[in-house]
Design a protein around this nucleic acid. Sequence first.
RNA 1: GCGCCUGUAGCUCAAAUGGAUAGAGCGUCCCCCUCCUAAGGGGAAGGUUGAACGUUCAACUCGUUUCAGGCGCGCCA
Length: 541
Amino acid sequence: MSIEETLKIKIKDSLKSEGLDLELNDIIIENSKTPEHGDYASNVALKFAGRLGMKPRDLAEKISNSIDKEVIEKIEIAGPGFINFFVKKDAINSVVKGIISAGDTYGRGAKNNKKVNVEFVSANPTGDLHLGHARCAAVGDSICRLYDFAGYEVTREFYVNNAGNQIHTLGLSLDIRLRQLLGEKIELPEDSYHANDIIDIAKLYNEKHPNEYKVGDEESFKKLQKFGMDEELEKIKRDLELFRVKFDIYSFETDVRANNHVQDVLENKYGKFTYQQEGATFLRTTDFLDDKDRAVVKSDGSYTYLMPDIAYHLIKLSRGYDQLIDVLGADHHGYINRMKSALMMQGYSKDTLEVELVQVVRLIKDGEEVKMSKRTGAGVTLRELCEEVGVDATRYFFVSRAASSHLDFDLNLALEQSSSNPVYYAQYAHARLASVLESASDIKIDENAPMLKEGSETELLKKLIEFPHIIEVSAEKRAPHMVATYIQELAASIHSFYTNCRLIDRDNLEMTASRLALAKAAKIVMKNALGVLGVDAPNKM
RNA sequence: GCGCCUGUAGCUCAAAUGGAUAGAGCGUCCCCCUCCUAAGGGGAAGGUUGAACGUUCAACUCGUUUCAGGCGCGCCA
């Protein structure tokens, strides 16, 4: 059990004897910000004195007196009623051994039997993944890694919209490009896909199927369209893999629509929530969370995007997840209440689906915003980012900010100053430790680390102790950026430790044995933390 | 007009269910390698947390109002 938990239980017991029965989670123990405040601090006395009709300082006094001094050196009451705990050094030092024996699993939460499905990226197979997809991919995948590490059972899912208008547009665009290639003088219409990858695919098609395309022939067109879609999807998969994102399931809209399934869902499950208006069918989402009823069938008889989407979400739920999460670009926020309403119509709670909105990224180059567009081909793609900025730096950049923050991606900074990028600061800390441990491989490590007492040693130890809690909280909040913030602090503690303490001293092997143990533990934690974000922890830089 | 998101140091962003002196990186200015990786360390400067009220022992955090920016308000997806 951690020191923190021990303290919580003791405070809980103490409050109970005062007549206040609290949940363990109601009791907050935080790391003290300054050494004068000890190692840990709690505000329970301030928070609950009122309920007991006591003065905060008096309650703090009672709590403090009831705690035995097993791991605690001393307790001080400060300010309006904070309780500051000073922990015995050997209690802190003992975590080193625990971390080393846990290794890869240090910080990992116990399996909690919660099944979570995270759908993210889900880009239409009509072009390259761009900046916005890149952020969603980084955020979505890190959330999954975080969930997995925290003990949840996670499924990563990508939904392929391969049945709508956009696919028809893809076909038309390819048709024009192919005909241009074959010498026809013809312009690409404004509302087509103008990106260069369409030309490449047309060329590829022509190489694989020379002299085969018949202009105006429906079957020929379908074949070209399918070819294009398959190519685009394969490209997306390749790019994602390069970005270290691997999906467990690719679901296709055509499969959702197969066997008249969408119609069945509409009639059997949503019939009583619909009405006709001007030839179209509307869903009464306003009975739930929406501010407007939504069309599900157009007056021409075809579905709007919403209907298959609803059917798809029900399919996902039928697979038995406790929680559905959609990671979406912020421009889709209007979608949330529609889908939640539709699920509530089937008896699901409004929290069954949670949507993580990822704000737009502005690309800045030479101090000016670069407008990105799939159509003009001017946008920066995920592939370019990986190649030019690097996978580690790109992932880390996107994930070190809250998903809800609008952020600027300064291309100049990313390219020219990559050496001062925060991700290298963290990786460098890991590499330094690796290097020291390598060159001291002949020295026996003392995992009990009894010699640690320097300020920078204790500071680092306390950072290491925090890690499991950081994982727990950031998973709960779906906030991988909290891990990134932690990584920066951990790296700072490591660098400070490295500079202030000579790790290898062959004239003082006792000290060396303790410090190497700390180095080993710190290296483990850094690696585990970076792993949660999908970033490498190199041994050499 | 309505709805969602955002506003914190010169710039990009943190601040775990409200806690003690609001923190990092970049940039600027000083120091520090005869020694394990200087992609590092130490220090300085830089803030009325957009503004105003309110709730509280305590507000960047909660509430109301207001200003500014982004996005969304289709039988497009």
